[in-house]
């Protein structure tokens, strides 16, 4: 992993649970990662893997019945979990900002664009309404909305999805945060707009020198925008690597499965796209051992019985799999090359 003095945020053994009907559902179960300053970390995973809950936990925006049970979130060396609610409010929108998935519903329908962008600066910098409006205009220009003067007085319903997402970004960046959390910022947009928005985030990141956590389920997005990737599965990180290593040399069977299930334009496709068999385990039915074991083509008894640790691979990259440990009792496997043949034998 990257060296400590240059990390903007360092999440350590984060645990967030939801308490429903007296039962505990562990949505995030011991997640550890850090984001080097000025870099982009992608958090990838299927629906329900806990990636959004991780981001909301960083913002301390977990609503009842959810609760952050343990761990540390060190932002610039200070643990956010020790902060009071008032201190958190000063950080939210100011030092850490968030972009939500659904631009259609993330803007208040009864306020103009100028009002909503100005909101953040009015909260944090106590600017006057007039100054806030100037700031709003500046932000609209920054995110590249055409004829920004006209858009200032528009209401959200008068904007297209892509424009609304740009407005969301403008709102999030109005106070020049050090860290931007983008929770599936492009999921609700069509593909050409997706590319524009991702490029915009990337450019703004370089321009403003901020760090980004990008939550997504789209590996294509990750390849394009991220420096580091954390792959989440069932509330745990199964692999953490820099983006090149992850795509070139994936270590965890789940990561390999994800990559294999992507259509590629550089390889001739024959037959069906491969899929990962089975379903993500539901939180009330978590496997005892490795959580991916029931779906893993390489799984052995040791995988089903014991949960592997996130082991450092020496180069800063980490993987949570028995295959890459000394304890592995099965035949030698190369996860990437042997995956398909193993998967085809899977019943």
């Amino acid at each position: 992993m990257s060296d400590k003095q240059n990390t903007i945020i360092d999440v350590n053994e984060l645990q967030t649970s939801f308490f429903v009907d007296g039962k505990e559902v562990k949505a995030v179960d011991g997640v550890t990662f850090d984001v080097p300053s000025g870099k982009t970390l992608g958090i990838v995973g299927e629906s329900g893997s806990g990636k959004s809950i991780t981001s909301l936990s960083i913002m301390r925006l977990i609503n009842n019945p959810g609760k952050i049970k343990g761990g540390e979130i060190n932002f610039n060396g200070e643990n956010l979990l020790d902060k009071s609610e008032a201190q958190m409010r000063k950080i939210r929108g100011n030092q850490i900002s968030m972009i939500f998935q659904e631009p259609m519903t993330s803007l208040n329908p009864v306020f103009t664009v100028a009002d909503q962008i100005g909101e953040a600066v009015m909260i944090h910098q106590k600017l006057s309404k007039k100054k806030a409006r100037e700031k709003s205009l500046e932000m609209l220009k920054l995110v590249g909305i055409p004829s920004p003067e006209k858009r200032l007085d528009n209401y959200p319903h008068e904007l297209s999805g892509g424009m609304r997402q740009r407005v969301m970004i403008a709102i999030a960046l109005a106070c020049r945060p050090e860290l931007l959390i983008a929770d599936e910022p492009t999921t609700a947009l069509d593909v050409t707009i997706q590319a524009q928005i991702l490029r915009l985030i990337r450019n703004l990141q370089e321009e403003l020198g901020m760090s980004v956590i990008l939550i997504t389920h789209d590996l294509g997005v990750v390849a394009e925008t991220c420096d580091y990737v954390a792959v989440m599965y069932a509330g745990k990180i199964v692999e953490y690597a820099d983006v090149n290593t992850l795509f070139r040399d994936p270590k965890h069977p789940y990561t390999v499965g994800l990559l294999k299930s992507l259509p590629r334009h550089d390889i001739d496709m024959e037959g069906d796209l491969s899929t990962i068999k089975g379903m993500v385990p539901t939180p009330d039915n978590m496997p005892k051992g490795c959580r991916f074991a029931p779906r893993c083509p390489f799984a052995r008894d040791m995988c089903r019985e014991n949960l592997p640790h996130l082991e450092d691979e020496g180069d800063g990259n980490q993987v949570r799999c028995w295959i890459h440990t000394d304890q592995w009792d099965g035949p030698e496997v190369n996860v990437k090359d042997d995956y398909e043949s193993a998967a085809s034998k899977q019943s």
Binding site: F100, N108, I123
Partner: peptide, 26 residues
């Protein structure tokens, strides 16, 4: 439950601000 309420919370708005500026008009 709507996302924009979460969005303004993520901007650091106080409860009073959220209730009177964002929920009431709606």
């Amino acid at each position: 439950k709507l996302e924009y309420v979460d969005a303004v919370r993520a901007l650091g708005a106080t409860d009073v601000r959220i209730i009177f500026r964002h929920i009431l008009p709606n």
